[in-house]
Design a protein around this nucleic acid. Structure first.
Length: 561
RNA sequence: CGGGGCGUAGCGCAGCCUGGUAAGCGCACCUGUCUUGGGAGCAGGGGGUCGGAGGUUCAAAUCCUCUCGCCCCGACCA
């Protein structure tokens, strides 16, 4: 393609409302434009990247026997009502009515519709397994779209759904997806982790996420380099640093106006690790007291998985339920449900004395109070791996893919049954699997850029090579550039030819911004001696090559990186 | 939905506090000229209901009220 004939509106300056690097660079390099919050236009270059990614997705999905289909994105409400999600999902679902007043919604995912198809078309165990996928638009009315293309209200998703006769089959489909996903993200040039994740509202028991490390990511992941344990911080288990306990006798001490752990800890000159933080929350089934160590934080989601929906108690509620004001709560002597972090199970601690302006020293778990023990703290960098005891790492990541074992969550309510060998009706065992192509593109930029712009991984670059004839007014330059372009296209390379009548500096700057992996530079002086330069965008390394050898050298050059 | 910030030319911004002399700057764009290995120079030019509505005033980009939009933090995230 010729630059002069393409819409590539590069920007010299950073747009004011972009903050994430991928967002800034996609705007500056002319890949996308924003319509309104969370809705993006993909310009020619941006579309090329998405299509490269989609091609990889299709190849790898087809390779595991998945079949491409396409589903409507307008859905009748009835199906969503049957699974209950019409009611469970809140404002995130776009809802509307057709002219007949029939309730509809825009598809935010396709479990219901895929299962609807399976109900009708899958009859026998002989039809199984089936894996169906599509690459199609999803619509979710996000509360807060952000970070450019990373979180939008409308986005492309490769979603696949597996239907098996039993748990073994699901396991196979799940593993095949995991392997395909590894290949996909590798081919896209991403650094990524596969981590254990919370199945959440998707239902089912097992789920993994594919996470691309990047400071722009909104998910936090716990990684153990020693044993390979990797999990989303929403469920990651970890052991807080061990501490040496004193042999305190139970004793109440006067701590006037000292309420927070920091205040009491500095007042008593004891490290926060020796404290028990007591947090009262109000759940659907009544109040619950959550206990974590003084140097730890309570993880709401971890607690939520144990007690369900809950919210922090208000000050008045604390007084009413526990009989003491916040700041002096201790775990002793309460009748309500207590969930305590596992690391508190042993030791001798300090906490509130359940009377105003007093704390208690020498509290022994198991003796002075009892609790249900769960890992409910937020994993931190200083924690150690719960599996092998070695240090863990915490990283911010972009979720680029996920895989869920659904079981019969959808096939049950929608009555997706098959007949087994004995003629018995059984529910299909399902899995669902997603990948966001736009997030792959954004993550690739987040992980591959420098001060000058994007450095695309070869697998998903919009073009393989950019030709830069530095002076288009020089007839020799223009002539050789055209010939090289034709020859290289004939070789099967995708080429962007910067045939604009721009100064050399402009072409270099734009080429670096746009980030095509290989540049062929045609300067007047080199050309007089019969040479051009082949330059690698990532390293900046350039080699001088005779014009007639370019086609051959490019072959070597490209394969050497 | 709560908190904060910002809306002035395609992009980046100044002007607002202290109303009039305030529709400005840089880049981009158009014409000409010159230049061609890292966003050149010179000369000329086009482009704005100052997000919108209402109000105060002799007079509003500027003050007041309402409203819409965008970004960031948090909550939420099938």
């Amino acid at each position: 393609m010729h630059f002069s004939k393409m819409l590539i509106p590069t920007l010299r300056e950073t747009p004011a409302d972009a903050e994430a690097i991928s967002h800034i660079l996609m705007l500056r390099a002319g890949y996308v434009r924003q319509l309104v919050a969370g809705l993006y236009i993909y310009l020619p270059l941006g579309l090329r990247v998405i299509e490269k990614i989609n091609k990889i997705l299709k190849e790898e999905m087809n390779a595991i026997g998945a079949q491409e289909v396409i589903m409507p994105l307008l859905h009748p409400a009835e199906i969503w009502k049957e699974t209950g999600r019409w009611y469970e999902i809140g404002d995130e679902m776009f809802r509307l009515k057709d002219r007949g007043g029939r309730e509809m919604c825009l598809g935010m995912t396709h479990e219901e519709i895929m299962t609807w198809l399976a109900v009708r078309e899958v009859r026998s165990y002989r039809d199984l397994p089936q894996i169906w996928y599509q690459i199609q638009t999803k619509l979710r009315d996000e509360a807060r779209p952000k970070s450019g293309v990373l979180r939008t209200r409308e986005f492309l998703m490769k979603d696949s759904y597996s239907f098996d006769a039993g748990e073994d089959g699901l396991e196979r489909s799940y593993q095949r997806h995991a392997e395909a996903y590894h290949k996909i993200f590798s081919r896209c040039g991403l650094k990524f982790y596969m981590v254990e994740s919370d199945p959440g509202m998707m239902g089912g028991a097992v789920a993994h996420e594919f996470m691309a490390p990047s400071p722009a990511g909104e998910d936090v992941v716990v990684i153990c380099d020693s044993c390979g344990y990797a999990a989303n911080v929403e469920l990651a288990l970890s052991n807080p640093p061990g501490i040496k306990f004193e042999d305190w006798k139970f004793e109440e001490v006067y701590t006037p106006e000292k309420r927070t752990v920091e205040e009491v800890s500095s007042f008593l000159k004891l490290s926060p690790q020796y404290f028990i933080k007591s947090i009262l929350v109000i759940g659907d089934d009544g109040p619950v007291l959550a206990l974590v160590r003084g140097d730890q934080e309570l993880h709401e989601k971890k607690l939520g998985r144990i007690i369900g929906n809950h919210r922090p108690a208000q000050k008045i509620e604390v007084k009413e339920i526990l009989g003491v004001e916040a700041g002096f709560i201790g775990p002793m002597g309460h009748q309500i449900r207590i969930i305590a972090d596992t690391c508190l199970k042993k030791g001798v601690y300090v906490s509130g004395a359940n009377k105003p302006h007093y704390h208690a020293i020498g509290i022994k778990p198991g003796e002075d109070f009892d609790a249900e023990w769960h890992d409910i703290h937020v994993a931190k960098e200083s924690d150690s791996c719960s599996k092998c005891g070695n240090p863990i790492r915490i990283e911010c990541t972009i979720e680029v893919g996920n895989i869920f074992k659904l079981g019969t969550k959808y096939s049950g309510p929608l009555k997706a049954f098959y007949l087994d060998e004995n003629g018995q009706g059984k529910p299909l065992i399902m899995g669902s699997y997603g990948i966001g192509p736009a997030r792959i593109a954004a993550a690739a930029i987040e992980q591959n850029h420098d001060k000058d712009g994007i450095i695309w991984p070869k697998g998903i670059a919009p073009f393989d090579i950019e030709i830069l004839p530095l002076n288009m007014k020089d007839s020799k330059t223009a002539e050789v550039a055209e010939k090289l372009y034709k020859d290289l296209v004939k070789e099967g390379h995708e080429i962007l030819m910067d045939d604009r009548d721009e100064r050399a500096g402009v072409k270099f700057k734009d080429a670096d911004l746009i980030g095509i992996p290989t540049h062929i530079i045609l300067g007047e002086k080199n050309l007089k001696d019969g040479f051009v330069e082949i330059k690698d965008r990532r390293t900046g390394e350039a080699v001088k090559v005779r014009v007639e050898e370019v086609v051959e050298k490019v072959r070597d050059f490209i394969s050497s990186f």
